[in-house]
C-alpha cells in the first residue's frame, strides 16, 4: 500500500484530505507543520506528500527545500495544497521541487486528478 503524508496545521483540512487519500488507497500519516513532516520523512519516506504552505514552526516551502536535500528526498511526489493561488507562489513551489499544485478549495476529484497526473495512481 502506498503511503501519503498529509501536512496541514488545520485539523479539519487534515481530516478531509486524509479521508480522500485513504479512499484512493493510501495509508496516511499526518503532520501539523513542516518540522513534524521533516521528522516523519526522516523515519520513513512516504510515496506522496500533500503539503500546506502557511504553517507555524516550519512552512511548507521550507520543508520542501529541506526534503529535496535529504537522502531519498527526491522520491516522494509532493503536491502543494494551499490557499496561496498566485503565479509567484506556484512558480516558487515548482522551482523548489513540487510535482503538482492544488489551490484551495479542493475536492476529491481534484486530488485524484493531480495524483494521477504525477503517477501516484494509475489509469
Amino acid at each position: 500500500m502506498k503511503s501519503c503524508l498529509v501536512v496541514d496545521d488545520s485539523r479539519v483540512v487534515r481530516k478531509v484530505a486524509r479521508r480522500i487519500a485513504e479512499d484512493l488507497g493510501f495509508s496516511c500519516i499526518e503532520a501539523e507543520d513542516g518540522k513534524q513532516a521533516y521528522e516523519a520523512c526522516q523515519k520513513s519516506m512516504p510515496d506522496a506528500i500533500l503539503l500546506d504552505w502557511n504553517m507555524p514552526v516550519m512552512s511548507g516551502i521550507e520543508f520542501l527545500e529541506k526534503l529535496r536535500q535529504m537522502e531519498g528526498g527526491s522520491y516522494p511526489k509532493v503536491v502543494f495544497c494551499t490557499t496561496e493561488n498566485n503565479v509567484a507562489h506556484i512558480k516558487r513551489a515548482l522551482q523548489a521541487g513540487a510535482n503538482e499544485y492544488i489551490m484551495k478549495p479542493f475536492d476529491s476529484e481534484i486530488i485524484e486528478n493531480k495524483f494521477r497526473q504525477v503517477g501516484l495512481i494509475e489509469g
Binding site: V87, K91, L94, I110
Partner: peptide, 11 residues
C-alpha cells in the same frame, strides 16, 4: 483549471 490541467501547463 484544476480539473485535469497539469500545473506546469497552467503556468
Amino acid at each position: 483549471v484544476q480539473r485535469g490541467l497539469p500545473i506546469q501547463m497552467l503556468m
